[in-house]
Amino acid sequence: MSETTVAAAPSTRAAKRHATARRLQQCAIRLTTEHGFDGWTMDDLAEAAEVSRRTVFNYFEGKAEVVLGPEPAVEEASAARFLAGGPTGNLFDDLATIAREAITQEIHDPGSMSAFREAVMNDPHLLRLVHARFECFADRLADGVRQREGTDFPATRVRLLLRLLLTCFDDALDRVARDPSRAVTTELDAAVADARAVLL
């Protein structure tokens, strides 16, 4: 939880950069869906997005970064609230709140999210990259859980909570794939509620 991002009002230039980065990611996801992760080059991406190769590398270092997009981030105030035992006092619900915030920052188009999930599920290489990224994010969340709950909180429970959260997220993506008009955050809330109902 030590790596946080403080939200700020985006400037016009920042908004343009974000839009370009998002367009590059969407093109990369489409290329991956059509040709597999190893079936296209950064030159192909530049052509598909109608930008120069140099522009692509101004935004992303390589194919993995452009397909996966920015790493999940949590605002400083939200991280502090979580570490203090909030916002609800229930550890799993509070982890879900952190995940929801990270999703809200990065996902604005449910269709793109469904396409991303399809690309990941159909490409073993990309699936490994996604899991590696989740492991890094989970390690940061685990550090936050230990700071909040104490160092004697069982590591096995930390990993189980994070795996359960990932399962809820994956279920939310399945729900959005069936009904693209639904928001990922809404479906994540529903999946968390269903998990709680089943486990209690």
Rank of each mutant, 00 (worst) to 15 (best):
M1Q: 08
E3A: 11
A8T: 15
A8G: 05
S11M: 05
R13F: 06
R13Y: 04
R13N: 03
R22G: 03
Q25M: 11
C27V: 09
A28P: 03
A28W: 03
A28D: 02
A28K: 03
R30I: 09
T33Y: 05
E34G: 04
E34Q: 15
H35V: 04
D38W: 06
M42V: 13
D43I: 14
D43E: 13
L45S: 02
E47P: 02
E50C: 12
V51C: 10
R54A: 15
N58F: 09
N58S: 13
K63A: 04
K63L: 09
V66H: 02
V67N: 03
L68Y: 01
P72R: 00
A73H: 08
V74Y: 04
A80E: 14
F82Y: 05
L83T: 11
A84F: 10
G85I: 12
G85E: 13
L91T: 07
D94Q: 07
A96V: 10
T97N: 05
A99S: 07
E101H: 13
Q105M: 11
I107F: 07
H108A: 14
D109S: 09
P110L: 10
M113Y: 04
S114Y: 01
F116G: 00
E118P: 01
V120H: 01
N122H: 12
V130K: 08
F134C: 01
F134T: 06
A138Y: 04
A138S: 14
A138E: 06
D139C: 08
V145N: 05
Q147V: 13
T151F: 09
A155N: 06
T156W: 07
R157Y: 06
L162K: 00
L164H: 04
F169K: 03
D179K: 12
P180T: 12
S181N: 08
V184K: 01
D189R: 13
A190Y: 03
A195N: 01
R196N: 12
R196F: 13
L199H: 05
L200P: 04
L200S: 15
